[in-house]
């Protein structure tokens, strides 16, 4: 592309952006049915905007988002199973490489952190990681849903709903507990129960991280003056980072604790004994060095 053409393209896109901006400012936003305080309070407490779940129960928008994300993921998996996986080659193509890298990443994480019983752990952290990552990215699309009060809301990330975050935290703790029981029996239960704060910390870490992201995004989009330029940074980059970091943190913590509680106790004792012997040897070495120094000084 020549310089002249480039210059023309830049001017065209800048003019287009200005036209959209002017249009947005001149038309104004529709009348908001809630104040920013109410909106942010609802993001935390979920007591105002409820969505009817097939007429059975009024639920938080996060649960609906969770169902949609699960549906998308299952459809994607089905597509891969039918159309992609049967055509896998020994020398992988681009898409095959991506799939293999993702599966290999979680499988490797499970194997690295837990030397025993890592088959189930790998599958669990794969599902959890995929759900958290996709769920967090889901809020980027601003899928609209109608609340029971007839207002439109954009669906948030499933884990910005406290119920979703509690489910994920507690389920991860149960998975860790199961690893402890299978690996060490009753001792494993004891080891897992020692970490009694884990379900709370896992749940609220996830909830807090996603809620803060959702709050910032809501705040930015609430005021039309903040809606130009800033969402590129806040909406896209932060959400992408967020999705990666939260998926990584939860899966890493789960696999770490799982590996710790499922590890056989005898090995630890041996390791401790070895460490004790090493420390003793170092101490005696240090003493002999000190004695030599004293002698040399004398």
């Amino acid at each position: 592309m020549s310089k002249e053409k480039k210059r023309k393209a830049i001017i065209f896109f800048a003019a287009l952006a200005l036209v959209f901006m002017a249009g947005a400012v001149l038309t104004g936003s529709s009348e908001k049915h809630e104040t920013v305080q109410e909106m942010m309070r609802d993001s935390v407490l979920h007591d105002l905007n409820k969505i009817s779940l097939l007429g059975i129960k009024d639920v938080n928008p996060g649960l609906i988002a969770g169902f949609i994300v699960s549906g998308i993921l299952i459809l994607f998996a089905l597509f891969c199973r039918i159309f992609v996986i049967p055509k896998f080659k020994l020398v992988p193509g681009k898409f095959q490489s991506v799939l293999e890298t993702v599966v290999g990443l979680f499988d490797g994480m499970a194997k690295t952190n837990s030397h025993h019983l890592n088959g189930f752990l790998g599958a669990y952290i794969f599902a959890a990681g995929a759900f958290i990552f996709t769920g967090t990215l889901f809020e980027l699309f601003g899928v609209q849903a109608v609340t029971t009060s007839g207002h439109s809301v954009s669906l948030p990330a499933p884990f910005s709903d406290i119920n979703g975050a509690i489910m994920m935290g507690c389920l991860s703790y149960l998975v860790i507990l199961s690893g402890g029981i299978i690996g060490n029996g009753v001792k494993g239960i004891g080891k897992t129960l020692k970490e009694f704060s884990l379900p709370i910390s896992l749940s609220f870490r996830l909830f807090g991280a996603l809620l803060s992201g959702a709050l910032v995004t809501e705040l930015v989009y609430y005021y039309s003056s903040l809606s130009y330029g800033l969402p590129v940074l806040v909406g896209v980059l932060f959400t992408l980072l967020h999705a990666l970091i939260q998926a990584y943190v939860l899966t890493m913590l789960t696999s770490l604790f799982y590996g710790e509680v499922s590890e056989k106790t005898e090995k630890k004792k041996k390791a401790k004994d070895k460490a004790g012997e090493k420390a003793d040897a170092e101490e005696s070495n240090q003493e002999s060095v000190d004695n030599n120094e004293q002698e040399a000084a004398a």
Binding site: L63, G66, F67, S70, L73, I74, A77, L78, C80, R81, I85, L99, V103, F106, G122, A123, Y124, F126, A127, A128, A130, F131, P158, D161, N163, G164, M167, M168, L171
Partner: peptide, 17 residues
């Protein structure tokens, strides 16, 4: 949420992982 995730876990395990 648990029900949803369980189905997702099963499906992802069988179909993809």
């Amino acid at each position: 949420h648990l029900f949803n995730f369980t189905i997702l876990f099963g499906a992802l395990y069988i179909l993809l992982y």
